[in-house]
Design a protein around this nucleic acid. Structure first.
Length: 139
DNA sequence: ATTCTAACA
DNA sequence: TGTTAGTA
């Protein structure tokens, strides 16, 4: 498939897909026309890239990790013991990050619950859609 | 109509 | 990362 379809399938801008290639995250073949030619597996690959990027990993690390993963029946499997150090380091960093997020969420929830609700005159006719505040759901 | 490269009011 | 210009 060409870049347009991959962009549509993944929701990632073509500009970004080209950037990922520049960062060695994707290696599409080139057609005689010069157009990039992606394979079906690239759809999943882009999703993984997005996930790792969102988790805070830099492109160089992702570029090292992706080629060292093997798709198994259920999920993924590692294949490069040399990367174990980096992997554990990232895993620890993310864990620390999650802990910070938890405290931040708890803090905001406390502030929200202690905040008096405003009572504006809703004469616009439209139904009032006051957003619900987090009610301490997860974990 | 699509994609490509390069560049930035 | 977005957007755009000028091509192929």
């Amino acid at each position: 498939m060409r870049i347009g379809e991959l962009a549509r399938l993944t929701g990632v801008n073509q500009r970004l897909l080209r950037y990922y290639e520049e960062q060695d995250l994707l290696h599409p073949l080139r057609r005689a026309s010069g157009y990039r030619d992606y394979d079906d597996a690239d759809v999943e690959r882009v999703r993984r890239i997005r996930t790792l990027l969102a988790a805070g990993l830099n492109t160089t690390t992702i570029a090292d990790v992706l080629p060292c993963t093997i798709d198994t029946d259920d999920g993924l499997a590692g294949a490069c013991p040399a990367l174990l150090g980096d992997l554990r380091r990232e895993h620890a960093r993310i864990s620390a990050s999650i802990t910070e997020l938890h405290t931040a969420r708890t803090m905001l929830a406390a502030i929200i619950d202690a905040t008096p609700h405003e009572a504006p005159e809703n004469d616009s006719g439209r139904p009032s859609d006051e957003g619900e505040r987090p009610s301490e759901s997860n974990r």
